[in-house]
Amino acid sequence: MVNLDDLKKEALNLLKDEKVKYIIGYTEGSNGTSAAPAFIKNPEDTDKLVWNPGCFHNLTRFLRDEKKRKAREKHPDERPVGIVVKGCDSRAINVLLQEKYIKRDDVFILGVSCESTGVIDEKKVAKKLKGKKAQKIEWDTNRNLVVTTEDGTTKIPADEVLAERCVECPVHSPVVYDIFFGDKIKRTTDAQFKSVEKIENLSQKEKWDFWKKQFDKCIRCYACRSVCPMCYCDECVVDTISFAVTADTTAEEKAQRIKWIEKSPTPSETFIYHIIRAIHLAGRCIDCGECERVCPLDIPIRFLNKKLEKEAKSLFDYEVGFDPDQLSLVSSFKDEDPEDFIR
């Protein structure tokens, strides 16, 4: 079991010894089952850290903010940032290292093992609770979620409430870390791509109808983009000012900028947005499932990334986020790469 006190103690020491600038971890959320990201600067606040089944956020996303903040400072503090990561999140760190977005010294990684479970899907838990508000959630040792509400405690088997990505997770514990918390349980999955089969088995028309219906709901809030650790571009195709304007940018350059996509949430624009997002994450997405979790309209966009992850694995034997030194999927080739699908 992950011992929260060990995690707190380590965090306390890191801050006391001034080894890290601050620590990105989880704290109690105000909203039912969810934990909330916490940014801890003072040693005495380390007591607020939590580790529970509601710690689904991928905190590596905040390394983007850290990098931007650092770039603005004249004399930046060069110490690393302490960061709590799960297995999936740790693969994001490897991708960011691979892409040279961060350096290994920029982070001090507090890796936590998901052991035999993972994190919950809030919607699944909410359905089980039928409107009741959870006061506390935790895993017991028999893979049950123990939920405390005002009516007492209930036990729900993990498989009924685990997030789908945890069911399909190939790691369950961090692949890169400085300190490890919990047990290094070897847990394998033979169903890494089970969920995409639901879509793959549809006919072309059914697929079109499915996505048409889903994307019609999209309000283009871009939470799916904003939450992703790998969506770090300064120039995003969806923004109205889609290139970095500086004081030196000429009027002509501005006038000639390409407008890739309209703001209107019409089918063509929304499809384009989602296709671009998915393609830009091919060979980079580590399936933390955050894009889908944050969508206020419950659009199952994880399928798109999962499908590309499957293609990369089956066609190129490429797996994301295990080796910071591997070449990137889209900018490298091997002689034995298949070509038969190129038309």
Partner: peptide, 11 residues
């Protein structure tokens, strides 16, 4: 600090 600057709260 934890805001991801999405459009959910406003939209």
């Amino acid at each position: 600090m934890s805001c991801i600057r999405c459009g959910i709260c406003t939209y």
